[in-house]
Design a protein around this nucleic acid. Structure first.
Lengths: 210, 210, 210, 210
DNA sequence: CATGAATGAGGTTTCATTCAT
DNA sequence: TATGAATGAAACCTCATTCAT
């Protein structure tokens, strides 16, 4: 699903190759400097290209942001899609554990990306913004479905499912957004476990059952 | 504790007055356009001043951001300081309820500010960044003290107090950051109540006590 | 009838003043280098301004061309308008003499302008192009009316009035376009007289009358 | 008389062949976009070549313009050379008729070329410019000789022969330059006839003879 | 004290030209 | 021989900052 970006080059496979390269390198630069502060020259340098060369594969600076968003969201969403599809062989509680874990790990290994995509959201053009939000809504919907299943199975007791699903998303994101705090406080492993257990406790059906 | 900002004017009281004005007006502009997209002229116009005049009270564009941060954090932190000082006359649980409520309401009425301060954090100079983080750490410390008291009193059962304190901070911020989601989903009142109860449930000592 | 050009400055009279200055100076540069070769810096330098300053009075490079066109066509058309309005007190033949003279003199004293406007026509944006053509059509119409009067009065014998009017326009323009030839061949005075008499002879009614 | 253009290729005949091809194709592009707006890539594409290949037969973009000028002027001047060489078997008046006709027809069938060569003259390098002017002067000289013969034969009465010769050149060019006017006003045939008769009337000896 | 005209550094983008394949 | 990817100079334009009025 390649987006229509004006290119100079005609060789489709080379274009794809270079764009993937650009998406990866640009993410680092955008993450560290932000969209407006990062100059096209900075990005080109990070890609080990001349500025002119960059423009053979990209029509404008906005397109770079879009490439980053597209490449990143694809990679990230791939990381958790499989978790939710594990079927009903295990309890909803266990799927929640795995889902939060998978998502947080994905966030951890794409921290730059997450920071760019969310922190810079306001600076992105509407096309990229939509892409990010759509991916997020997809994920939220998956969580909602899972929580509903857990409620039906009597595992969970939740007043507001969408909000709870949302909170779960946020748990993973916070690992990126507040790394300046968490990094000096605990390991990824500890973070995931503790946050997950707090969330599970907050939605567990047991305490109210009794 | 006036920061050392080069000014043109010598009249200290006028300077303070104008700076407060600038901080208030600039916040609006920075919130809507972001630090890099907002021009000094935009800001001056919002202040109903000539651009030259602005520079009598401010040494650089960065200083404006600093003023906004300083002014904003002061105002916000004032909103919650009194809650924590309510003393030991009520249960920790109740103080948590009031604190989250106070903080979320503060965030709600200073949404622009919150967005600027956090979203633009990377764009701010280190001086402003430090200011924001220090204020936040102050608040986190207050939460930690409160949670410790609750644990000592047997109200709470918490594995990782700093992390839990942090999560409480985040609850309030999310109301601003994810307003595009929450605003169409629930009222401020509902948001505060539900989130608070979830947090309380996740740290309540009862379920494990038994 | 000031055109809507985005400006930075708000002082209307200063804007007008500077724009007139820009129109005059830019015409020289555009004439000598052409629209594409002339850089904005070249033009700014010719205006004795910084490049940035130029952009306070002009929204884009195209606007500069438009200013030149507008300023020039106004000035040029003013030069001849009065000739045609001299009324019927003199013979059409005499008016033709005066009109060609007036127009050629106008062309002579605005050679740069004429060269820019016509030679660069293809490079101008449609707005400027329309302006030039409209002015020209106005002049052609005036010639046509004059020739018709001469025919009615029996002074002229013309097969194709619009074409003849057109030829008269061209006489004046050629003084600018082919100056590299005429300048070394004859004076302006000689040029005007000889060309005029040739034209008059070619449309005189006498030879055929007899 | 091949000009010294740096080439990559050594095969002289291939070079000539390709250059003729380039001259023809480039003329179209230059005519429609102008020298500065037309990119080397545009031209290469019109030649159905890669940009690199073009540079095997041409040293620079200026060289392309030169090729177009050279090729074009040769072709055009061939069109009328034979007319003037028809000798003294017919009256000068008749030769003028045929010459203007031949030249105007040549202009008509090479409009693109004429427009490029004259409109873009200022953009061409001095080498190409000289080439065009020399060809034009050759033609002017032929007209002058013809007019002189007509005067000697008592057919014409001309005050300024060079200027009149010049006017004759201009008649043909105007068909290209002002086609936006003439095309909607008359046919080529009508244009040639009417303009020619006006010129002939203006130089005819008859009216003054009497 | 207030103003806004002036400035020029620096950002994005284009394109003539080269050169490895 | 033919190609087109790579390059970087240079173009247009914006805007933080200064300073004369």
């Amino acid at each position: 699903m390649q987006r229509a970006i004006r290119t100079y080059s005609k060789d489709e496979s080379l274009v794809s190759l270079r764009r993937a390269h650009i998406a990866r390198c640009a993410a680092r630069v955008l993450a560290s400097k932000g969209h407006d502060r990062a100059t096209v020259r900075d990005i080109a340098e990070a890609c080990a290209m001349g500025a002119g060369t960059l423009y053979h594969y990209v029509g404008s600076k906005s397109d770079i942001a879009y490439l980053v968003a597209e490449h990143g969201m694809t990679e990230i969403s791939n990381s958790w899609k499989k978790v939710f599809s594990e079927g009903d062989s295990i309890t909803a509680t266990e799927v929640v554990r795995r889902a939060i874990r998978a998502q947080t790990e994905a966030v951890d290994s794409h921290q730059d990306l997450i920071l760019v995509l969310y922190r810079e959201m306001a600076r992105l053009d509407s096309r990229s913004r939509r892409l990010v939000l759509e991916t997020e809504m997809e994920l939220a919907a998956a969580y909602e479905k899972l929580l509903t299943r857990g409620c039906d199975a009597g595992e969970f007791s939740i007043q507001d499912i969408p909000m709870t699903a949302h909170n779960m998303l946020v748990v993973a994101h916070m690992w990126a957004f507040r790394r300046w705090f968490f990094r000096r406080h605990c390991t990824l492993e500890e973070y995931m476990t503790r946050e997950t257990e707090m969330i599970l406790k907050s939605i567990s059906a047991e305490s109210s059952k009794e």
